[in-house]
Design a protein around this nucleic acid. Structure first.
Length: 467
DNA sequence: TGAAATGTTGGGGCG
DNA sequence: ACGCCCCAACATTTC
């Protein structure tokens, strides 16, 4: 008898409770990843997120081969594939890390009706059902949630298993990977556990030469030109890093901080991990968070031309277009840029956040339903713990504040590469002769703004205020 | 994890 | 010297 280790959002050997659990049931563990045809059909086959996934699977396969095993990848309907695999490998159990998205829960529930699927652990640090208000209902406001989270975290022993090493026995059946790993580029994110561990180490552990970026996170995280964020999200999204290890790294960084200011910086990043848990539990308790507003009804305009301009990064607002193009070209976007482009779509263009949510999910290598729905609803002012409806980002002010020299803009919007600093945030102000001098004619080389922000702001206040 | 409008204060120019 | 105005700088409120 063997046991199937069904890998989903836990593409790692380090600190994998499902793998440890699986190895308790049988001497032979069969590592399996199933490309879900229901999800695959919806995805652009050239999307970076697929490239990153394939390469991460490939990296896991390499690690498994070093241990005398290998990864079996199938494409199809999970329940059918699992049934085939159980027959082929004479398995009597399937073990997987639990997942709390509505789709995963429905799928797993259906599978459990006919197959012995055992779910353990969670992709969040705390299980979504484990942090509740005194009356047993879920939190819908972040601040009290985070207080409770932090209190519970004091008792949490953040220990993780380095590697389960020789626990994996040989599985000598060889299957071919039926997806091409070479069609996809993964750009900035190096796949696999080793790269993920290196990045986590770089971000959280200081060396003699330099202080770890986490100790400056509070001050620099919003700067688009400095790019001092952790860049861990794609690894966290696929479970290439375990949530326990993230928690332990943060704790260690707090212990290692040399002063109050450093500790405060680390706590801001810790807060981001708590936001992630918060939105995972929101989606768990309110499964329609992705399809309907948590609060408020907005009369969207949903103009198709406007949406298209936004999608391709041709709104005429450099900071908005830079963000979108970073997403298109790298599969990732700086967090500050995400807020700016999201505010522009929902408030300036009055386009339903669901369009933006869907677009982000298609493009982002770190696209996670819970965080994405939560973030979009927050910006749109329709969410659980939403930004007030009148909080409308001014793309010019944001640009000046967080990309003062236009370095980020010039990197992603090459049409503007010669535009000098005084005009970089609002190039339409350039006189015609300067447009010629800088090889950037507004209206042909680079678009005119598709909407006037001051007009758009008033319109948004009306649309939001009258609901 | 905003921004604009409005209010207040105080310094400097100037008749 | 004085009052007046302007406006920058900052604070508060409003959307």
């Amino acid at each position: 008898m063997s046991v199937i280790w069904w890998i989903r959002r836990d593409i790692r050997l380090t600190d994998n409770k499902a793998l440890i659990e699986a190895s308790k049931y049988a001497a032979e563990v069969i590592p399996v990843y199933i490309l879900d045809k229901f999800l695959l059909e919806k995805w652009d086959p050239k999307a970076q997120k697929l490239g990153f996934l394939f390469r991460s699977l490939s990296a896991l396969d390499t690690r498994l081969r070093q241990k005398g095993s290998r990864l079996i990848i199938r494409a199809g309907s999970p329940i059918d594939e699992l049934r085939f695999l159980m027959n082929e490998f004479n398995s009597d159990k399937i073990v997987a890390t639990d997942d709390h998205t509505p789709y995963s829960r429905k799928r797993d529930h259906e599978i459990q009706q006919s197959l012995p699927l055992i779910l353990v652990d969670s992709p969040s640090i705390f299980h979504p059902a484990s942090i509740l208000k005194a009356d047993g209902t879920p939190y819908t406001i972040f601040t009290p949630y985070s207080k409770n989270w932090k209190m519970k975290a004091q008792d949490l022993v953040p220990e993780f298993q380095r590697d389960i090493g020789t626990f994996i026995p040989i599985s000598d059946t060889v299957y071919s990977v039926n997806v091409s790993l070479n069609d996809h580029l993964d750009y900035g994110f190096l796949p696999g556990e080793e790269n993920a561990q290196n990045r986590l180490n770089y971000f959280t552990v200081s060396t003699q030469e330099q202080t770890a970026p986490i100790y400056g996170y509070k001050e620099t995280r919003d700067r688009l030109d400095l790019d001092q964020t952790s860049k861990l999200s794609p690894y966290i999204r696929l479970g290439i890093l375990s949530p326990r290890q993230l928690f332990q790294s943060v704790n260690q960084a707090i212990i290692n901080s040399t002063n109050e200011m450093e500790r405060k910086n680390v706590e801001v990043w810790l807060n981001e991990l708590i936001w992630r848990d918060f939105y995972i539990q929101i989606l768990y308790h309110y499964p329609d968070t992705g399809v309907k507003n948590f609060r408020n009804t907005i009369r969207w305009k949903n103009n198709e031309d406007d949406f298209h301009s936004w999608q391709v990064g041709r709104t005429g607002y450099p900071i908005v277009d830079a963000g979108i193009r970073q997403l298109i070209h790298s599969g990732w976007m700086h967090n500050r840029a995400r807020m700016i482009v999201a505010s522009f779509l929902t408030k300036d263009l009055l386009i339903d956040w669901k369009y933006g949510d869907k677009y982000f999910m298609e493009k982002l290598v770190d696209g996670d339903p819970a965080a994405n729905h939560g973030g979009w609803q927050w910006v749109a002012g329709t969410g659980t713990d939403a930004a007030p409806y009148f909080r409308i980002f001014n793309p010019i002010i944001q640009s000046r504040k967080f990309d003062p020299d236009g370095k980020y803009i010039r990197k992603w919007v090459p049409e503007l590469v010669n535009v000098p600093v005084p005009y970089i945030h609002e190039p339409w102000l350039m006189p015609e002769n300067e447009q010629k001098d800088f090889h950037c004619i507004i209206g042909s080389d680079y678009p005119k703004p598709i909407i006037d922000h001051h007009f758009a702001r008033e319109r948004a206040l009306n649309a939001y205020g009258n609901t």
